[in-house]
Write a protein that binds this DNA or RNA. Structure first.
Lengths: 172, 172
DNA sequence: AGCACATAGTTAGCTCCCTAATCATTTTCG
DNA sequence: CGAAAATGATTAGGGAGCTAACTATGTGCT
């Protein structure tokens, strides 16, 4: 129980086991440990990502929006963006507001749909992506550098399955 | 490229590859994919967890605090809680405020340190944990039910290593 | 044609967690 | 012993994302 698991490895297997035992439940402590660690790790990595993007004056959400826009030819409707990014339309509105204020995207009315708007990546937005690319992708690569190619493939598979399983949290 | 990857599997390997190629970087697209998927999955699972705990009138942070408190005998200082939960002391203050308002914890001044406070799990707090335990742990188990015992062990190992690697995002 | 209903986008208000600054107590040390 | 530094907790303020409600435009059905 040495205190050099700098944290970040919380909770411990013992904690998981004690909790389950405490309530006399017939639940696999290891399964609980995996679930809780993922939730905890997700928050942790999310915060690290937020700090990372802050270097470039962006947030995780704003970066993801810019990148998605560029990958899609530089134009996309807010609804479509919300769908592809997996966030609400209201969130996209907020992200676009911030990006527009900094001149990284522009909004223009849709030509086909009177209700619609199209978000357009500006030259400045593209430039921002270009500027941060080497550092950004370099750090991402370093992040998983400790895993072999095979391990990465396994991780992707397991991660996808657990994420799919996370529907169990919200079911009903 | 069928559109039945309900999302949740975003981004695609193709997107990762295109992005890296676009900037002519010598970065492994698979590594980028793993990193980006983890960031995305973390946010997704985090939101699912938040919705899950909301059922019981709690948030992820508040639940984690209560659980940690119980596991520690029902008493702990805010600073110690912050350390063990991996959040800032200011966040713990906020969590305690909410929990105290609902009568799930109480604050009493520390007897040893004039500056200190001790958070105490109340009977109501313990009851809340007891009430939610079957549903809560059941769902957690279901979440990772798709993985075999061996796969869970592998996942724990890989997850820990990637989390450790995420320091690369904030380094410097 | 006209009216119900769906859809695009935004706004308002909420919670989560963070950092930075503040205040009160220790603790340390010249 | 008394000043400086460290530590515990809180407050103030900010950004992310959410839901629900609202406006405006499109679509469809009778």
């Amino acid at each position: 129980m040495t205190r050099d698991d700098i944290d970040g490895e919380a909770p411990t297997p013992d904690q998981a086991r004690r909790q389950v035992e405490h309530y006399g439940l017939e639940v696999d402590p290891q399964a609980v440990l995996v679930a809780v660690r993922l939730i905890s790790a997700g928050a942790r990595v999310g915060r690290a990502a937020e700090a990372h993007f802050a270097r470039f004056g962006l947030s995780t959400g704003r970066y993801r929006l810019l990148a998605d826009l560029e990958d899609h030819g530089g134009e996309k409707s807010p609804s479509h963006l919300a769908l592809d990014l997996g966030v609400s339309r209201a969130t996209v509105t907020g992200l676009l507001d911030g990006l527009e204020r900094e001149g990284l995207i522009a909004r223009r009315p849709s030509t086909e749909d009177g209700r619609g708007t199209v978000a357009v990546l500006t030259a400045r937005g593209a430039q921002r992506l270009r500027d941060m690319a080497p550092d950004h992708f370099g750090r991402l690569e370093a992040m998983v550098g400790g895993l072999s190619v095979e391990e990465r493939a396994v991780f992707l598979d397991l991660l996808a399955r657990v994420v799919r399983g996370s529907a169990a949290l919200t079911a009903d």
